[in-house]
Nucleic acid binder design. Structure first.
Lengths: 225, 225
DNA sequence: CCCAATTTTTAGGTTAACCTAAAACTAATC
DNA sequence: GATTAGTTTTAGGTTAACCTAAAAATTGGG
């Protein structure tokens, strides 16, 4: 059931870059994407606007770039194609890693579903991949419970686990307050406990404990460690 | 030697269409090309102008379209890629003729020489084609047994000389950084200058300049050309 | 808290590759 | 040799995807 919006090649490239950067660094910034794709930051900015309009990412001015559900799906699809193409070229044809990666990049936009699917069959048959390794192909329908990036808001973190602050989303006074508490970028936090209604949340930062209201915690972007 | 002009995808498409039409009908007219590629005749006309300028076809106003020698060569190359890709997809992966042809059309512009050559090897090994059926490939192969040029690290290269990247020795982030700068395998670099203490080194890659710290340059294996 | 550096956004281009509509030309028929 | 049908060319757009330069906002260090 292809509800697929028709993505142009560059839109696919943007999505893929965002996906990879979030996976690697916990966040995808305009400059990172620009470096990655070797184009000007302003061009990326324009591209992101379009992705926003299409509902594939959600980003407010100067805010962080987040993939929406459909954006995530599209990105995974592209990435999967890329990966399979790479494996195919490198493993079965013996193309060098560099060329294989480069070509995968270019071809991933052009290959039909049919060819792609046949290629995956081939890879599976020759034991280059496990069947479940191509999530997109096998279970496009099933919802992945695990979100794309291990990046989420502090109020969603399980009690007992640790995380690292990526960014404080709020502005002005609240932001200052949170930063004064020691919740700067890169700070390691540990969620110690949570009251019955989820509020307040007790966390430990830099050795001392503090408690946050849930809506405050919801402003803090972290990645699990 | 490869004096290859860099052809855009549509220019390649025009050439291929012209080649095929001449082969089929003995002539290629603007309208035929337009029908073939499903675009407006006026667009074809514009495209032909560019091919004329590049010296790939020769055509006077309202006159017949003829491929020049270099145009013929380029067209044959594209056609050969198309054909091989088609065979590969159809014969070895079992992709339907329609999809295989369609995909070949799209991919032929993107595939590197290396992947193409590996694909042809595969086809030959499995007896899907005869060796001499791909004239264009043979040439590429003959060039291969060339002398192993002297290999050394980029920081040892004399100012003013040119080299080709063989390998990036470093790993991880640094490797990515270097590759993002365009220092991929096969990239031609020219050492433009060097500061008094040998650091930084200024090089030119793919037309633009960049400067590297000495220890970064020491991670890049190159061979002189 | 302020200042400098960095990042993001805006403003205002360019280019390739298409388009439609109409004009200029050629060829084919009467 | 005029008319007409078909072909090619020109004129004047549009769009996507990039660009540079500069303005605006954010971040980070002292």
């Amino acid at each position: 059931m292809e509800a697929d919006i028709n993505l142009s090649e560059s839109m696919e490239d943007y999505l893929e870059a965002i996906y990879n950067l979030i996976k690697e660094n916990g966040s995808a910034r305009v400059t990172d994407i620009a470096n990655h794709l070797k184009i000007a930051a302003s061009s990326v900015n324009q591209g992101l606007k379009k992705l926003n309009q299409e509902g594939l990412i959600s980003q407010e001015k100067y805010g962080p770039i987040k993939l929406t559900e459909s954006g995530l799906k599209a990105a995974e699809k592209v990435r999967c194609k890329h990966r399979m193409l790479y494996l195919f070229l490198h493993k079965t044809l013996g193309v060098s890693q560099e060329s294989a990666d480069h070509d995968a990049c270019r071809i991933e936009h052009a290959l039909s579903e049919e060819s792609f699917s046949k290629m995956v069959d081939y890879l599976i048959k020759n034991n280059y991949i496990e069947e479940q390794n191509c999530a997109f192909k096998m279970k496009a329908e099933k919802e992945e419970p695990k979100m794309a990036a291990e990046q989420l808001m502090l109020d969603k973190i399980k009690v007992g686990s640790k995380a690292e602050v990526v960014k404080i989303e709020s502005k002005g006074r609240l932001k200052r307050k949170l930063m004064d508490m020691g919740l700067n970028k890169g700070a390691k936090v540990e969620v110690k406990g949570r009251a019955p209604m989820g509020d307040p949340i007790e966390i430990k930062v830099r050795g001392y404990s503090l408690s946050l209201r849930q809506d405050e915690a919801a402003e803090i972007l972290v990645k699990e460690v």
